[in-house]
Simulated scan of single mutants.
Amino acid sequence: MTYDPHSKSGTSRQEILDLLAGLAPPELAESFDSGRIGLIIEGKEHITKISTCLDVTPAVVRKAIENRSDLLIAHHTPIWAPLTSIGGDDARLFSMILQSEMNVYVMHTNWDHAPGGVNDILADLLGLTERENMSLGLVGTCVRTVEEMVRILKAPLRIWGNVEKVQRLAIAAGSGFDSALIREAQSLGADAFLSAELRHSVYRSSPLPLLESTHYALESPAMRVLAEKHGWEYIDDLPVLHSLS
């Protein structure tokens, strides 16, 4: 039986899991993701409605339950560290999920590395062409100005260093500011590097100007596009930022 994403009667959980594993093969994941991807919370075996999200937050879970989702596909796992006890916020979150019998599936660094995954979708959004893959992320020809990138990403953009015009842009969605990766981007002809969550020491040693956006702005498009392509629903939970002057 072949999975039909538009079927009104739903399908088996295993068929959906096979589809997701095909899109983001588990073997592409970084070693630190061992045990943290795939079906991490098991629920109903029959799937009629699917939602996607970046983070499994209480707000996202409540919305997914309200939508009667049988499967929530996330980029970030809600269980990062091993649990020896469950209480407080974790207990409340898992209680909602388990009572609803909703499945939770995580596709993290395997979705980052996958063709057509997180970084390719971000590159599509920014209009990058003539792409070359890096060990994480890619470098592509850029026709956007920095101001246009801000409008496209709908998020603040900090500029570290002098940027006049970006012709070859390196991108690494998420927390990708790594000194070795920046040097790799430079070797591929990049004249700027876009990622999130920059450390001061990395900036100081960088041979390239760095463009710092938010983790959410760079990775959430992949989960939104995944939902759009398959007729699922993306649940937004944009972090609230406050600036004090």
Results as ranks from 00 to 15, higher is better:
154 K>Y: 01
164 E>K: 14
198 L>A: 12
154 K>E: 03
192 A>D: 10
204 R>M: 15
155 A>F: 04
119 N>W: 04
112 D>Q: 01
148 E>N: 13
155 A>S: 14
188 L>D: 03
173 A>W: 15
143 V>P: 09
148 E>G: 08
204 R>Y: 12
189 G>L: 06
202 V>T: 15
114 A>E: 12
120 D>S: 01
166 V>I: 12
186 Q>E: 15
118 V>G: 01
199 R>E: 12
123 A>M: 04
116 G>R: 07
183 R>S: 11
121 I>E: 00
178 D>I: 11
153 L>F: 04
186 Q>M: 12
173 A>S: 15
178 D>G: 08
140 G>F: 05
174 G>M: 06
167 Q>C: 04
174 G>L: 07
193 F>C: 04
170 A>M: 09
174 G>C: 11
155 A>R: 13
163 V>D: 07
170 A>Y: 02
123 A>N: 02
189 G>P: 04
138 L>R: 09
144 R>L: 07
187 S>G: 05
122 L>V: 03
188 L>M: 13
194 L>Q: 11
157 L>E: 06
168 R>V: 01
142 C>H: 00
201 S>C: 08
145 T>S: 15
152 I>H: 06
149 M>N: 05
135 S>N: 14
117 G>N: 11
120 D>N: 02
122 L>Y: 07
135 S>K: 15
160 W>Y: 11
133 N>D: 12
204 R>L: 13
150 V>F: 01
129 T>Q: 03
128 L>W: 03
192 A>N: 07
199 R>A: 13
160 W>H: 09
176 G>L: 07
182 I>Y: 00
173 A>D: 11
159 I>R: 08
113 H>G: 08
169 L>D: 07
128 L>I: 00
197 E>C: 11
112 D>C: 06
143 V>R: 08
122 L>T: 06
162 N>E: 09
130 E>K: 00
154 K>T: 03
194 L>N: 15
134 M>R: 11
185 A>S: 11
147 E>L: 13
168 R>L: 07
134 M>D: 08
142 C>G: 10
111 W>A: 01
181 L>I: 11
201 S>V: 04
150 V>T: 10
177 F>K: 13
192 A>M: 12
133 N>F: 08
143 V>K: 04
154 K>A: 06
158 R>K: 13
199 R>N: 13
181 L>K: 11
190 A>Q: 01
146 V>A: 07
166 V>N: 02
186 Q>L: 14
200 H>A: 06
129 T>P: 06
155 A>L: 03
164 E>A: 06
128 L>A: 01
202 V>K: 10
158 R>F: 02
116 G>S: 01
198 L>P: 14
111 W>Q: 06
175 S>T: 12
185 A>L: 14
198 L>G: 11
166 V>R: 03
111 W>Y: 09
139 V>C: 01
143 V>H: 09
130 E>I: 05
114 A>L: 02
185 A>N: 12
168 R>C: 10
158 R>L: 08
197 E>W: 09
117 G>P: 08
151 R>F: 06
